[in-house]
Design a protein around this nucleic acid. Structure first.
Length: 479
RNA sequence: CGGGCUGUGGCGCAGCUUGGUUAGCGCGCUUGACUGGGGGUCAAGAGGUCGGGAGUUCAAAUCUCCCCAGCCCGACCA
């Protein structure tokens, strides 16, 4: 079933599907397909990222990579294949990942003596090398980031949001002290992930601590950023873990301290994935497709030639060059052999924040038409002012998307005092509830499809542990 | 793995209950004309092992059996 076909074929059917309805995942899938972001691969749960989807991913990569490097980490690359025995070295880790491993049993036409695992994450293989590289406290901290694909054999894949193979960034660090590691995990959480989500993606996120039940397999502490999607459900958009000395002990990662004592290193790991593309669709999209925040959009402005008569084509090309020279990511659409409406809808589906339409009718008035994707507002702008108005509008669209998302989240978040009320409230959004009230009810809550997204202190700051007094649990349904 | 359901041109579907001759429809695609400021109009055209196999029958997309694939809900998760 292709909902968007129906939506666009029958004007009366428009808005039948809203992000609030239970059909949102289908709506989501249609936007992904129609906006040419991705499609399903031949093997269940795999996906093909199309050029436009990849352009978005490249923007995400670039913005994240800048922040990761600012936090001192360097990029490196480790093997896709991991000996199964590596994974077994950390008990909780292997237990957590075993069910979803893809395992290679044959190579070169022969059965392998030891099966090889396709990495579900790279803690184990990276730590084998960290153990070799780290000798002295002078080698620490060791801050490494990897851009790679990983494979997790998901029981129930959802395109982009949860595929068997996905692209991500995984950071792995080793530190001399627990305090240094803990501080770094939080630094990544705030300076890389929270900053990126809010300032680039325009997605306000809850920043908090995961419960023991929800934390990463092998970690002591898991921090998270959680976004609220258009239908009120939660999406984990990134995580940062304190691994303690769990892996260091499993992989014999020791160093000689300033005092000459052999000590185990303290570690972190952290990652975000192509799921962020899904968060964009789910978080900002509407019935007409994607709405991209200008700070992230691979194409911020499209200059659309309505008809190439009376110098409109030349004028449009000139404005495109002017915008490009000003550093704007801009594309010229002069495909006048295709209907205007068709092209307009295409750019709309792709979520281009600002569209400039130029045709003979505008030029006769000395104007161009500026259209905002977020509000669909159209405005006549004198040709000479287009460049400056575009810059101004891009700032406005960024702000308005972020404000919309924040208002939606706040409007759909309620304070409750009982587990039953929390389950009820989670039908529409998030519930904030004293952690003490549901601490022992977490399992039964989960049976109702509601999970603790994160724990925060009353002032919104991040708890040092889940046993602190007067913590607030934010609960909701999750993708 | 448990519970529902679906396989018919590139995509979405009808036809099946009650077998019947050249298997239809919408979208998309190709060509041409008129158009062109939100998926425009008209005309012509290309494109199908009806998921696979076996069976019943004069005759199977349709009935029977077996197999395969996929989707949705649940358990897992960036």
């Amino acid at each position: 079933m292709c909902v968007l076909t129906a939506v666009y074929s029958h004007p009366m059917a428009r808005n039948v599907l809203t992000p609030q309805s239970d059909d949102y995942p289908q709506w989501y899938q249609d936007v992904v397909a129609k906006a040419e972001l991705a499609e399903n691969g031949p093997v269940r749960g795999t996906m093909v990222i199309r050029p436009y989807g990849y352009a978005i991913w490249e923007r995400i990569q670039r913005e994240l990579d800048d922040r990761i490097k600012a936090a001192g980490a360097k990029n490196a690359y480790f093997p896709l294949f991991i000996p199964e025995s590596y994974l077994r070295k950390e008990a909780a880790h292997v237990e957590g990942f075993s069910p979803e491993l893809a395992v290679v049993t044959h190579g070169g036409g022969k059965e392998l003596e030891e099966p090889i695992v396709v990495r579900p994450t790279s803690e184990t293989i990276i730590n084998v090398f960290f153990a070799k590289w780290i000798q002295s406290y002078r080698d620490l901290p060791l801050l490494i980031n990897q851009w790679a694909n990983v494979v997790r054999w998901e029981l129930r894949p959802r395109i982009i949001l949860r595929t068997s193979e996905f692209l991500w960034q995984e950071g792995h660090t080793a530190h001399a002290t627990q305090a240094d590691a803990g501080g770094y995990a939080l630094r990544i959480l705030h300076e890389v992930y929270e900053d990126f989500a809010e300032r680039v993606m325009g997605m306000p996120v809850l920043v908090g601590r995961k419960t023991e039940r929800e934390r990463f397999a092998g970690a002591d502490t898991t921090y998270t950023i959680e976004g609220m999607m258009g239908d009120g459900k939660a999406l984990q958009m990134g995580t940062s873990h304190e691994l303690g000395q769990n892996f260091a002990k499993a992989f014999d990662m020791t160093f000689q301290s300033e005092k000459g004592v052999q000590e185990y290193a303290w570690q972190t790991s952290w990652g975000v994935s192509t799921r962020l593309i899904g968060a964009l669709v789910m978080g900002h999209g509407d019935d007409n497709g994607l709405r991209l925040p200008p700070n992230l959009a691979p194409i911020q402005v499209v200059v659309l030639v309505v008809r190439a008569e009376d110098g409109a084509g030349e004028r449009a090309a000139a404005i495109t060059e002017e915008l490009r020279a000003a550093g704007t990511r801009v594309e010229l659409d002069n495909r006048t052999d295709t209907n205007f409406g068709r092209r307009a809808v295409e750019w709309e589906l792709k979520g281009i924040p600002v569209r400039i339409e130029i045709g003979p009718r505008d030029l006769a008035q000395g104007n161009a038409t500026l259209v905002r994707r977020d509000t669909s507002e159209k405005e006549a702008v004198p040709i000479g002012e287009v460049a400056s108005r575009v810059q101004q509008t891009l700032v406005e669209v960024q702000l308005s998307l972020e404000t919309d998302a924040r208002q939606r989240r706040d409007a759909r978040t309620v304070e409750v005092e009982s587990a039953d009320d929390a389950v009820e409230a989670a039908r529409a959004g998030f519930a904030r509830i004293p952690w003490d009230i549901i601490r022992d009810a977490e399992v039964s809550l989960a049976e109702a499809g509601v999970t603790v997204r994160c724990l925060q202190r009353a002032d919104g700051s991040i708890p040092g542990s889940s046993t602190e007094a007067e913590l607030v649990a934010i609960v909701g349904r999750a993708y």
